[in-house]
Simulated scan of single mutants.
Amino acid sequence: MRLIDTHCHLDFDELTRDRAGVLARAKQAGVARMITICTEIEKFPRIAAIAESADNIFCSVGTHPNHAQDEREFLAQEIADLAQHPKCVAIGEAGLDYHYNRAEKDLAHRVLRAHIEAARLANLPLVIHSRDSDADMAEILEQEYAKSPFKALLHCFSSSRELAERALALGLFISFSGVVTFKSAAELRETAALIPLDRMLIETDAPFLAPVPHRGKTNEPAYVADTLRVLAEVKGIAPEALADITTANALKIFDKMPALAA
């Protein structure tokens, strides 16, 4: 069974303290690839260096909505230029976060649209963060897609069924994290049951949101296998089958990554 953790943060202190152990446990759990996600463009050199350190680590470049006010507004072309790094396979994570509301909405919307344009310019998928922002997120995605298509996924999905349906109509992928394993996430599991298998991805969002049975611990890429098992039960298929499907999906959308060796 080979898995791809499509979203983790290997630069965060909780994981850097024991990176060798984190990577060893990921390998033991069947995690063949990891994508370490950028949250501040100004820190991209550090992210890229982590990706360069191992053949099975890739990265993204982008500004998380909760950091939009912490760094200058990068032009779409600047972001796309950085994404030319050989290990960079995505733009983001970018999006909207109305839970914390750290960035003013006008700024957050501009930064998101700049990242959408960067995804077009670089021909790379956009990794989207959306929290408590369903209506505005769906509207912006539909407006931008009407201008010109782009590849994208909603990461760590915990939003409404309506947002999932509107995103799927645009061709987006939906990625599930350990949240889907939580006892309180029955409604999310109902939504997951409706997601077509060919649009489903898995992730950890490590070091956050450790899945059951690891809740309360630091999350790490190895735990993506626990999320897989719950999603397989929700979809009514064997974990091995879902592993093959989600890995194929990850290689399809993150198509800058080379194919896995036989």
Rank of each mutant, 00 (worst) to 15 (best):
R2C: 10
I4G: 01
I4A: 03
D5C: 02
H7L: 05
C8W: 02
C8G: 06
L10K: 02
L15C: 10
A20F: 04
R25L: 05
K27L: 12
Q28T: 13
Q28A: 15
V31Q: 09
A32T: 00
I37E: 01
I37R: 00
E40P: 10
E40M: 12
E40R: 11
I41W: 03
I41R: 02
E42C: 06
P45D: 14
A48D: 11
I50M: 09
I50P: 10
I50D: 04
I50H: 05
A51C: 01
E52H: 08
S53K: 02
S53H: 06
S60K: 00
V61L: 03
G62N: 12
G62M: 07
H64F: 10
P65Y: 09
P65A: 12
L75S: 07
A76V: 04
Q77Y: 15
E78D: 09
I79E: 04
I79F: 06
A83H: 01
P86S: 01
C88N: 01
V89E: 00
A94C: 05
L96M: 01
D97W: 07
D97K: 03
H99M: 13
R102A: 13
R102G: 15
A108S: 11
R110C: 14
E117S: 10
A118F: 12
A119F: 12
R120G: 09
L121S: 09
A122I: 09
N123I: 01
P125N: 03
P125R: 01
L126Q: 02
L126F: 02
R131Y: 11
D132N: 14
D134N: 11
A135W: 10
D136S: 03
M137W: 13
L141G: 02
E142H: 14
Q143T: 14
Y145W: 14
K147M: 05
S148V: 07
K151N: 07
K151G: 10
A152Y: 14
A152F: 15
L154I: 06
C156A: 10
C156F: 09
F157V: 06
S158F: 09
S159E: 13
S159I: 02
E162W: 15
E162H: 11
E162L: 06
R166H: 11
A167L: 05
L172H: 12
F176Q: 03
S177L: 00
S177Y: 01
V179R: 03
F182C: 01
A185T: 11
L188F: 08
R189N: 12
L194M: 15
L194Y: 15
I195Q: 13
I195Y: 15
I195T: 14
D198F: 11
L201W: 09
I202Y: 15
D205R: 00
L209R: 00
P211A: 03
V212K: 07
P213T: 13
G216Y: 12
G216P: 10
N219E: 02
E220V: 10
E220Q: 12
P221L: 08
P221F: 13
D226Q: 03
T227V: 11
V230D: 02
L231V: 05
E233Q: 04
A238G: 05
E240F: 13
A241Y: 07
T247I: 04
L251G: 07
I253V: 14
I253P: 03
F254H: 00
F254D: 00
M257C: 04
